[in-house]
Write a protein that binds this DNA or RNA. Sequence first.
DNA 1: ATTTATATTGACAACAATGTCAGTATATCT
DNA 2: AGATATACTGACATTGTTGTCAATATAAAT
Lengths: 226, 226
Amino acid sequence: MSSVAKSPAAKAALPEKTAEKAPKRVRRTAEEARRLILDAAEERLAKQGPEGLRLQDIARDVGISHPAILHHFESREGLVRALIARANKQLRDTMLTALGGGHVSTDAADHIDHVFRALSDRGTARLLSWLLLTGRASESSDAHNIMGEIVAALQARREEYAEMKGKPAPDKEDTLFMAMLTANAAFGEAIVGRQLAEGAGLDQDGIKRFRAWFAKLLNDHWDGDR
Amino acid sequence: MSSVAKSPAAKAALPEKTAEKAPKRVRRTAEEARRLILDAAEERLAKQGPEGLRLQDIARDVGISHPAILHHFESREGLVRALIARANKQLRDTMLTALGGGHVSTDAADHIDHVFRALSDRGTARLLSWLLLTGRASESSDAHNIMGEIVAALQARREEYAEMKGKPAPDKEDTLFMAMLTANAAFGEAIVGRQLAEGAGLDQDGIKRFRAWFAKLLNDHWDGDR
DNA sequence: ATTTATATTGACAACAATGTCAGTATATCT
DNA sequence: AGATATACTGACATTGTTGTCAATATAAAT
């Protein structure tokens, strides 16, 4: 990323007619180009925030000219929408497969860690946050379904677990609240986490301990009093 | 805030020389002007996100011309810095006075509600979030101290409470984690809260119930096992 | 090899936003 | 009242960013 792709320097060798053209243009498939562009945009967004999302910069990152981006996404807004759609999809997939994995009910720590990783460690939460901050929330009605699906899956797991233990079925709202708290905390951590941790003198390992602590809190509540 | 101050409409009464000038320019004190500008900027930011922070818009809201803003804040960046500084200060004050109020140890619900109100209901968390997303974190080294102060105050309360109950003093890190979780959750709620709540079919009252639920969770932990 | 479709580019247009400046009006001080 | 400091304005300069367009190169099809 230090040295940008140069135009062919070996061009003025022969002043003959053979030397006057050496275009060497890269041509990707549309799908591949879109993927590269989205990747670059995501990275910029994660690193520099909303104001770092400029077509020219992204183009430079990919090594293309900025009209190419317009060609693939119509407009800047189109690019943003594509970004949103992909982030939502990734999030949904990650969460649901995590919920689907077997070892949930016994140990919430892994589970919490999954959620935090999916949202916080990778830039997804920051991306989604920015989307929400800029008021583009309504466009991604997917978010609704995602939350619904997750809570449903979680509730199913919980009832299953309760039955196994011979306990009464847990309250649906209680499950919802657990999910909401987790989501809120993960988003919050994605944004203020590093800042808070630094302020409190917590290192990377301390953050891990925090997540474990949180997992335990939820775990206790999971098969606790209620 | 609905009707902006209008320029004098009663001006074309006499076509005489007396009617040709009616400047009626408002002149505030520098302090007052700065306050108004910051208020307007804050509101824009809360409503429309980062991209809504344009000098011309803010100026229109206040009823002045945009160079006036530059006059008071040097540059756009200056305005942003002032915004940050004020938000930090407000946050610190709110939190510490909330911590200082007597009824903390017995009922965490009020307390949690205070925190959420200070961060979430008003636009503070969104503002700070945007600041963090845009990477302006380093400029507000105040944040460090804030977190430190709060945790210290909380820990003091907790030790006091533990002694009253004749229990062993709580772990400092445990207190820190409680504060971190609360902060994360409040920030998260400020950003994704409405979206999640809608997706889950929760109304305003449901959000209140969630906060109460969270408060209870912390409360139980407060004088619980550890 | 020729044709076809389209990914890609450079140059330019259009616009928006910050910032500059010289001048104007208003509160305050003497 | 007159003088002074400065909050404020309108017009302009500047810069940066999105978007348009005609032209070009390249992969795939015939």
